[in-house]
Design a protein around this nucleic acid. Structure first.
Lengths: 344, 344
DNA sequence: TCGTGTTGCTAATACGTATTAGCAGTCCGT
DNA sequence: ACGGACTGCTAATACGTATTAGCAACACGA
């Protein structure tokens, strides 16, 4: 009985080979198993046993070197503190892990994904999932030769997994219209992200179609964050006539808006109705609970991972995996939306 | 002028060597630069220029194979949807990226870190940061030979970066005592995590010292989640006499508790005071705002990464990097705590 | 007996880099 | 002019695996 290995992963295929009395090639054939390899059953089991006894684990780096594949994915997001992105990452990681891929997480901020992508490329990443990192900001050649899947963003060069963002805006608008509102506002990010733009468009178009334009002063652009929402709402509260219905591009800004109302002692939903977008867990924790449009964040991440992996597994010249059908969104009516107050 | 590379990273050191008219060894010497190498300045610059022109990026997998180091770290957490963990990860990733390390993210659930650790080991991870994944649950040999840093957990075998968890409990207790409370409760997780245990201990000991024991019925153990907090609080509300002061082991459960009170129309802080722990961003978003003990999550992650990297950079037989001094915590008094209601 | 398959394994090589030993060539002092 | 020291580079090898070509042994039919 040879002594058990004490160091990290010093057990190589050669050690297994020695113990099983075969060559390293045979070990590789047995374990990384081209199933069509002709191997005596007895040899096979002897190798397996030796590997088991030694606690052999293949060195993925070495495998990657020869296979030209690292079985690792990159996931780039602007900001992990946004629970929406956290959910996307979580969904992607779960699928990836199940399929044997590991996930490099990169937080890029709203810009500067470039360096991260370069770093990942030198790690021989098999593919990358980009969520709201602004592909347009990336020089095309930095992604050249890369397997890319976008989340909630469409781009002619890369496949993407999207939610029905325009419908999200439309649902918010219809809901608020049905409640009798006539004076609308919007709070969104300044950055040019596809999903946000579509949410806004769905909202404003639906309103326009109903004869209710959104005054440009009632269109506040800041960060899609709590702070951005507070700032936006403070500005809205100063407007005359004051909007009675506000759609926020995501839940964080909606919560910020809600907070701003609370601080200004403006009643929600009595004086102002607020509708968010995402349906993060916190949406149910505030009082009143946030009315919002649910976006399946976790599912977006999971699908992105699946799509990416399928793309990799495909024989290379497979169909380029076009963007998939938008995932459905749905309105979750809670406590921050109510009938419009009677006009003065 | 040779054509620019079109594929991912097909440019190797050999290509650079050819273009610069030197050998691959020279390229390696120049770029991965042992600075004590004797190289003519002119050669050096010729290599650098060739590398630049070809857009050469070293293959980290190959480097890792020979250097026996992958420049990648693993970060294991139970659940990314907890903003506290997200912050830890974020802090660690930032530091790691700055130091040239990439981060594998693994969400383990409250158990089952084992497989993830194994997967990371076969990826030749340089080290791993474990946050609340329950080291005790891991078989020791699975971590043998691994560089490990724990977050918010102390263990005799591994260095850790901790916050002053016991002080957190103590601060909560003192705060509630000063407000005149006499009937206390605690909501915490069932799992045996070091930080949670210490928070509880600091709380109960401080109360005991003041002559106020926590009745065992007022000690609710569930998940450290929103659901757990709601459940715990519902049970507490049924007790007679009803506790007037509740310390929750983390903010998520505190928010759950707060929610349960809202649903039961119990006034906070009028009837019950609630104190959380972590100070996640949402704590300021609920109404009333959550009184809590701030734990520097991001800083914990950052320090863990720094400690781990220092450990790796050390010459191998360096001092084993003992646990560092606990990071200070501080009470953030907000709206969910107030003077005890007059006794009946 | 020989040729032809077939089976089961191994030797050799490649992946892209780091690193060490060592080879020419130059410089210098005597 | 010659031995040594130094300078600047390269050849060779190793890291741990996957993969291909091919070798030896054997079976079988004629």
């Amino acid at each position: 009985m040879s002594p058990l290995p004490k160091s990290a992963n010093r057990v190589t295929a050669n050690d297994v080979a020695a113990r099983a009395g075969v060559s390293q090639s045979t070990v590789s054939l047995v374990l990384s198993g081209n199933p069509r390899a002709r191997l005596a059953a007895e040899t096979r089991s002897r190798v397996l046993r030796a590997a088991e006894e030694l606690g052999y684990r293949p060195n993925v780096l070495a495998q990657g070197l020869v296979r030209r594949r690292s079985y690792a994915l990159g996931v780039l997001i602007p900001d992990l503190s946004n629970p929406f992105f956290a959910a996307v990452v979580s969904g992607a990681e779960k699928v990836a892990a199940k399929e044997g891929y590991a996930v490099f997480l990169c937080e890029t901020g709203e810009t500067g994904a470039e360096q991260h992508v370069e770093a990942l490329k030198s790690r021989q990443i098999d593919g990358v999932i980009l969520d709201a990192v602004g592909v347009s900001g990336l020089t095309p050649e930095s992604l050249s030769g890369m397997n890319v899947v976008l989340v909630d963003e469409t781009h002619e060069d890369y496949p993407g997994v999207v939610s029905d963002a325009q419908m999200a805006g439309e649902l918010a608008a219809r809901h608020l219209l049905e409640l009798g509102h006539r004076c609308f506002a919007f709070i969104g990010p300044a950055i040019d992200a596809s999903a946000f733009r579509l949410r806004e468009r769905g909202y404003t178009r639906t309103l326009s179609a109903a004869g209710c334009a959104v005054a440009s002063a009632a269109l506040r652009r800041g960060g899609a964050t709590v702070a951005g929402g507070m700032q936006g709402m403070r500005a809205l509260l100063a407007l005359r006539p004051r909007p009675t219905a506000v759609f926020c591009a995501n839940d964080l800004s909606a919560l910020g808006a809600l907070k701003a109302c609370a601080m200004a002692r403006v009643a929600v939903p009595g004086d102002v109705s607020i509708v968010g977008c995402d349906d993060i867990e916190l949406a149910q924790l505030v009082t009143p609970e946030l009315t919002t449009v649910a976006i399946p964040a976790r599912e977006l991440g999971a699908r992105a991972a699946r799509l990416l992996i399928r793309q990799l597994t495909g024989d290379g010249h497979a169909p380029p995996a076009r963007a998939t059908r938008p995932l459905p969104v749905r309105l979750v009516t809670r406590g921050t939306s109510a009938r419009a107050p009677e006009a003065a």
